[in-house]
């Protein structure tokens, strides 16, 4: 049965971009193991030749004109909720070192 280690929890937390406390890591290891154990019920189901369902609707490739329904936001509106801006752009930390 699935038994997540703290190391696996740390690997997933990095993929998910979550910083967890030591207490959260051990708690989630136990709780996620229990939930995955519950999901083992699915492993015994015969799904040969059964296609996966990604959407309840039988709708594929909805096409529309290449425009923006309802228009776009102004720059001011787009920036209004940002934690940091220079008045014209979103401000983020550098993604590359200056020496790169």
């Amino acid at each position: 049965m699935p038994n997540l280690t703290v190391a696996e929890v740390e690997r997933i937390a990095l993929l998910a971009r979550l910083e967890l406390t030591e207490d959260e890591k051990s708690r989630y290891a136990g709780q996620l193991s229990a939930i995955l154990d519950y999901a083992t019920a699915l492993m015994s189901v015969n799904v040969d030749d059964i296609p996966p369902t990604a959407s309840a609707l039988d709708v594929w490739n909805v096409m529309r004109a290449d425009d923006i329904p309802g228009g776009s936001l102004s720059r001011e509106e787009a920036l209004a909720n940002a934690p940091r801006t220079d008045g014209a752009s979103f401000e983020v930390q550098a993604t590359f070192d200056a020496g790169d």
Binding site: I12, Y28, L36, L42, V45
Partner: peptide, 25 residues
């Protein structure tokens, strides 16, 4: 965390795709 695990390499077919197939049922 659970969703990231179910979509991660090595578990995608076993969990996510299998769940979508049982969803069909």
């Amino acid at each position: 965390m659970l969703g990231t695990y179910a979509l991660s390499a090595g578990y995608y077919d076993a969990y996510y795709i299998r769940a979508q197939k049982v969803r069909t049922l």
